[in-house]
């Protein structure tokens, strides 16, 4: 069975598909969130050997930070697809993702500050990890500002697409910052290719890792649901003079 992907690059045929996917992803986000929070609070150890109970903020902090990086990569991907194939829906996907990315970037910084005070003894330091994550947050804000500053949607798409592609170099910098430079932020607890005998693939208890994964899936599904919701609004708004939107309004489904 082959799917004609180009069919869904047309807003007219993607609009109903997006609409039918939203409830499923919302339900999955709620489910993962409930199970994830239960495991975080009641199954994962009450305290960490060094940090005591304050380590529990990890279950929000790490998934939020991951999502903020991942969403930017997805935005850059859509920008590249949009520039090569000239599909207007791709750029709409990018701008639908940006606010959620900004929220997660902020959440990562904020929970990090609240976690830093009881453990490191400070809310904020200018080390490579924290600074590059702050830059990511500013990139999101810049993206949103740029999109709303340019009146003509096609010019706005080109400008924001360029920002997404240029800004994506920051994502590997954030991820590897704790490896490349000396930072106050600790290294990654999950090593994809552990080097040496003293480095394990996973340096946390399994139940902690499970809780973190469940929360990540929750954020993931939430992101997809709100991005689809937002892209539907964007489609209707941008294409309000097209036949398919006019038909939609007449049929009362919008």
């Amino acid at each position: 069975m082959s799917i004609n992907w180009f069919k869904y690059s047309s807003p007219a045929s993607f609009y109903p598909l997006a609409g039918s996917m939203i409830p499923w992803f919302t339900a999955a986000a709620v489910l993962f969130g409930l199970v994830g929070l239960y495991v975080s609070f009641f199954v994962a150890p009450l305290a960490d050997w060094q940090q005591g109970q304050s380590y529990k903020i990890m279950f929000i902090h790490v998934p939020a930070a991951w999502m903020s990086m991942f969403i930017y990569v997805v935005m850059a991907f859509w920008a590249i697809v949009g520039m090569i194939f000239k599909t207007r829906l791709s750029f709409m996907m990018g701008s639908a993702l940006a606010p959620t990315g900004a929220i997660f970037a902020f959440l990562g910084l904020w929970t990090g500050a609240l976690w830093g005070k009881p453990t490191w003894g400070t809310y904020w330091v200018w080390d490579a990890r924290l600074t590059s994550q702050l830059i990511l947050f500013f990139l999101y804000i810049g993206y949103i500002a740029l999109a709303s500053a340019i009146e003509d949607p096609r010019r706005a798409d080109r400008a924001t697409g360029l920002l997404a592609i240029v800004g994506v170099v920051n994502v590997p910098i954030i991820y590897f910052s704790v490896k490349w430079w000396s930072t106050l932020h600790q290294g990654s607890s999950i090593n994809f290719n552990p080097a040496g005998a003293d480095q394990r693939a996973l340096s946390m208890t399994d139940s902690m890792f499970v809780a973190m994964l469940l929360m990540t899936f929750c954020f993931w599904c939430y992101t997809i649901a709100v991005a689809l919701y937002r892209v539907r609004c964007e489609m209707v708004e941008r294409e309000k003079n097209n036949d398919w939107v006019q038909d939609l309004v007449k049929s009362g489904d919008a």
């Binding site: 150890p45 009450l46 305290a47 960490d48 050997w49 060094q50 940090q51 380590y55 990890m58 453990t119 490191w120 003894g121 400070t122 330091v125 106050l184 600790q186 290294g187 990654s188 607890s189 340096s203 946390m204 208890t205 902690m208």
Partner: peptide, 18 residues
């Protein structure tokens, strides 16, 4: 004039550490 603690990336319950 300022001292900050730097902890590592190992997380485990205190009993396991002991």
């Amino acid at each position: 004039d300022e001292v900050l603690a730097k902890h590592d990336e190992t997380y485990m319950p205190p009993e396991v550490a002991k």
